[in-house]
Structures are given as C-alpha cells and as structure tokens.
Design a protein around this nucleic acid. Structure first.
Lengths: 159, 159
DNA sequence: GTAATACCTGTAGTCACTAGAGGTTCAAGT
DNA sequence: ACTTGAACCTCTAGTGACTACAGGTATTAC
C-alpha cells in the first residue's frame, strides 16, 4: 500500500488493540477477527501476550474498513490488499474489481429503487380502513397487484 | 389474509412440499424452515409422514415470499401475517410497519447511492497505470480523498 | 420389480462480525 | 507495595435467513 506517512522509526511508539481499533473505526473484536482470517498479519506480542501495533497496522486496517464501507466483500478486500502490496503491478485488476463491484451496487440500487416505489404506492393507496380492505395486505398477497416496473420479484432481491 | 380464491372444497387435491415450493417460488428446504420457525403452521402428514398442503398454504407462502422480496424481515412478516389473519382489525399497524420499512429502504438507498457515486469517481480517475499511482487504491487508503456527499462512512454502511 | 425421484430428520455451513464467559495483564492512584 | 479498574487474552456460541449435506424412507413411473 502506498505510504502517505513517513516510515516508522526505531523509536516508534507501539499501541494496543484498543487504540488501533479506535483509530481505524472498529472494535477490538473485529481486529482479532481480521487477524484470525488473515486480513491482518499476526501482531507481535509484548511480555504479557498482548498485541502491539505500529502505524502500519492503522493504515492497513483503515484501508480494510474503508473498502468494507464501500461494500467490497472480505474476499475482495483480501485481493485489493494483495494488489496494494505490489505498487509496481499494473492496476488493471484493481480496476476490474472496482468495476465489477460498481455493477453489483448498481443492480442492488435498481432493485431497491423499485421496491421503494412499490412500497410508496402501497402506502399511498391505503385508505386507512380495516385490514380486510388494506391495499398493503392486498399487494403482499398477490404479486399481480404490483406495478412491477423493476425486477424486485427476483431471486436474491434485496441488496 | 383476504381470500382471492373460493374456499377449498372437501375434494381438493393435496400437494407435496415440492409443488408448493415451485408454486410459491422457493425451495422445499425454505418451506420446512418456515414451518420450523412458525411462519407456516405444521403441515398435516400422509401415511408415509410426508407433508400435504392445500391452496391455503400456497397463498400464505406466496404472501411470505412476497413480503420478504420487499425486504421485510422475517419478524415483520410474522407481524404482517398476524394482522392479515384478522381482516376486521384497523390497518393502522400495517401502515406503520410499511412506513417504517419504507424509511429503512430509503436510508439504504441514500447510502448505496453515495457509495455508487464514489465508486464511479474512483474508477473514472484511474489513469490505467500501475497500482502505485492508482486512484482507487488511494481513495481506499485514505478516507479524506472521498468526495463524501453522503454518509457512506458510517457504522452499518451497506444496506 | 426396479430405478429414479421426492421426501424425511438432523446437523453444519454461509457471511461478517458480535457478545459473552472466565481468566490475565497493565496503568494509575494511594 | 498494594489495590482497583480498565484493557486485554482465548474460546465458544449467537446473529439472520436461509442453504447444503448425510443418511435414510416413500412414492411414482415404467
């Protein structure tokens, strides 16, 4: 990964898992989990068996959290990390991964948008009477009552 | 739930779990799962211990699948089913549930939209060189490089 | 009669964490 | 030096909504 900060010096301060987690916006449990599944390398331990980290770990974990926030799966993040570790490689694969992810996000957006529209229609048509006359229940009971502009009736529908 | 079809007669044909699943757009495993968690009542069995269903089950399961397709949680579906079972009750609660769900869907849409925009920006700015110069990696490494119109950097970010 | 298909139960796996039990270590204050 | 409380450790189990599999039984078609 590209260094934005100077290299850690020999006298660099080590931090514990709690501070690392705070700095990167996650919880200590999550850090241990990422170590367990190999997204983070096993951290060196102090005399009392507690993990000690440098700023390199903050950068790596921030990268991970940020990619996860973008909705990349853990496996995609693993690949992104591998690529980021070799700055001289062509970035074609990174681009491909990002584009594939964008396509998935857009598909989810489309489905979610059609769900939203249908929900709005359902709610607007509810006259406020009793359940027997309720349009919301009707639409849920019978797919044919849907306006169905988009593909919300598919298999893995909600993103 | 409001009947769209006439009441089942005494001579009605019973169907197996496979046909029920096909009719309602899910798998037999899912039907058994719904029975297990109490969304569907325990089906009567034939001599060989296999579940037999009537069209009532098709209607109920279709309702469930459809509500799930709209993104209602299983617990919300459970409540909707309870309400649908009492057609003379006021539909206020149904309305409330639907509106709450709409709000959640809109929140997810907002987050997802901001993620999509940022992904697009990342990809457009990738000059196609090597990983060391790759804007995608840069943005993932450093949240400050985000355009950040929306709240995609929050806690539970991706819907 | 036999072979293919559908069905049964029960358990474990998925994804990405999160929560808790039960214990150890560290840092600060007295 | 001692005590207290926070932070840390490992290991296991739970979340949601299914899905998959193993190992067996029933039904159906030929």
């Amino acid at each position: 990964m590209k260094d934005q900060t100077p290299e850690p010096t020999a006298t660099e301060r080590y931090i514990g898992i709690g501070e690392l987690a705070r700095e990167s916006g996650c919880k200590p449990e999550t850090v241990r989990y990422y170590e367990q599944i190999g997204l983070l390398p096993s951290a060196p331990r102090n005399e009392g068996n507690q993990r000690r980290y440098t700023t390199a770990a903050i950068r790596r974990l921030t990268f991970i959290r940020h990619a996860r926030d973008f909705g990349f799966s853990v496996e995609a993040v693993r690949e992104l990390l591998q690529m980021a570790d070799y700055p001289t490689m062509p970035c074609e694969e990174v681009d491909t991964l990002a584009k594939r992810h964008l396509a998935e996000v857009e598909a989810r957006l489309a489905r979610l948008t059609s769900v939203r529209d249908e929900l709005k229609r359902m709610i607007n048509q509810c006259a406020g009477g009793n359940v027997g006359q309720c349009h919301i229940i009707d639409v849920l009971s019978d797919h044919r009552l849907c306006h169905q502009t988009g593909p919300h009736g598919g298999a893995d529908v909600i993103g």
